[in-house]
Write a protein that binds this DNA or RNA. Sequence first.
DNA 1: CTCATTGTCTGACTTTAGTCAGAGTTATGG
DNA 2: CCATAACTCTGACTAAAGTCAGACAATGAG
Lengths: 299, 299
Amino acid sequence: MSDEQIRQVRTFNRAVTQRVGALDDDYLGRGRPLAESRLLFEIGENGADLRDLRASLSLDSGYLSRLLRSLEAAGFVASRRATGDARVRRVTLTRKGLAEWKILDRRSQDFARSLLAPLGAPQRQRLLAAMAEVERFMRAAAVGIEPVDARGAEARACIDAYLRELDERFDSGFDPARSVSADPEELSPPRGIFLVARLDGVAVGCGAVKTLARRCGEIKRMWVASNARGLGVGQRLLDALEAHAADMNLTTLRLDTNRSLTEARALYARNGYREIAPYNDNPYADHWFEKTLPRRSSR
Amino acid sequence: MSDEQIRQVRTFNRAVTQRVGALDDDYLGRGRPLAESRLLFEIGENGADLRDLRASLSLDSGYLSRLLRSLEAAGFVASRRATGDARVRRVTLTRKGLAEWKILDRRSQDFARSLLAPLGAPQRQRLLAAMAEVERFMRAAAVGIEPVDARGAEARACIDAYLRELDERFDSGFDPARSVSADPEELSPPRGIFLVARLDGVAVGCGAVKTLARRCGEIKRMWVASNARGLGVGQRLLDALEAHAADMNLTTLRLDTNRSLTEARALYARNGYREIAPYNDNPYADHWFEKTLPRRSSR
DNA sequence: CTCATTGTCTGACTTTAGTCAGAGTTATGG
DNA sequence: CCATAACTCTGACTAAAGTCAGACAATGAG
């Protein structure tokens, strides 16, 4: 990437933090510490669990506790044990707190309004479209891909989501029992690998490789959450899988897929996978693909 | 503007401040108070006047003085009286300070890089394009238009810039003495108005109206700085001038313009100005326009 | 020259933010 | 039931950020 591109990003960062960032510290200023306002705002109309607040605002538990006490003293919030897990505290806004929250919310709205107000309608549209685009790609850039234990909870959750989706998309539904197996052992090193793609700590995609024969592997469990599609996550997962496959000394990768998974098929086609004759008898597969990996993954 | 649009802006603000804003507090962390790093960074390779730093970082003078002392003690900066005004202090980075500045600069680059790195080339292009667009329009939105005294320093500076530009753009140069007059008195209430457009406190455009006859006014001094073109500043100035003209009970606005000022002519045409026969003998004018103002400016 | 203004500095503060160690309570897996 | 982990809370801190009043020097307008 060029210096010029980097310079552009930095200019953007400056411009945006100056204007947008100013708001953050400014519109929440209500004669009260900023952290308190932020907390109040984050609690929101529906209340929140203290545990989640701690995570989302990344505050020290002691600090959070004190902030909360202060909001309580001011009569803005009430807290009680969460139903379900009595260790967790559930915080909700009082009537007074809600009023305050609405003021903060209003302020934040006003700021957004002030950004749009001076613009004419066509410029407004273009600004919004560009904002949406920036946001999308910044989200995309924040997606990280990492190997995880295929037997772990996160991998399981991904696989469940994947299976659920197959069930929805296949004309006749999907019954894992009838399909070709891929049990966690096969997807764990040294004979396999399981990758997840995470956005803000939440898994939004996964993919796996298992070894079929001496130099031949198979791609399994390729899935991208619907809210993360179009960000290039699938492409990056595939790149990463191929790199890992090369590390495992595999030279050929195969996979099967269903006719209803059109994006997936396009992805494979784009990446040099050629359609081949069926290499298994998976009743859910309509297409079989194969790719010979380049000598050394150049990623 | 719709609630949906406002919601979009807010989502953007959140997403961007979270990611971009995080950097600000993060990449500058170098075992030293954030404010010190920010100051060091802001001083920059070429040094700066303390007065300007105080303004641009909006710090209390006492606080700034102390921060500076601390940077001095660490051997990062040196300060001496500014040439010209001995009240002002000029701060420059020492060799050591420059090295530190470069580290900070590098960090900020790395952050930008990390944003682009995970993206493929086409996505990178789209992100940058969208960023540029957002930045542009945020700048546009930050432009404010206000009446000022046509006899004041700011108005004079604008007019000078305007005349300089005419001199550059007209084939035969421009000599104010030969042109039709518009002295400051005519551009001051109640018979006239002078508006400036400011971006971050700096004038980037101006425009004026003077009264020609009982219900007829003339637009003069329409100018937009080259670095602020394409942001809709001209349009907004024109809107504001028409609104003020209506307030002055003018029903007709006239203006003359030169053939080389193509953007201006397009602007007037777009806004319902019709070309008319010459109403003056300005030797620099090639086109004369007129518009009947709507009963009440609906802006 | 005088006087108001501007810019900087110092001292004496307060407030905000954040950390850390431990204690007490409630879940959870075996 | 037991050990361990997950949450929250309190007390005791520190560091950073920011404010305010007043002193002093240089400037600039009249």
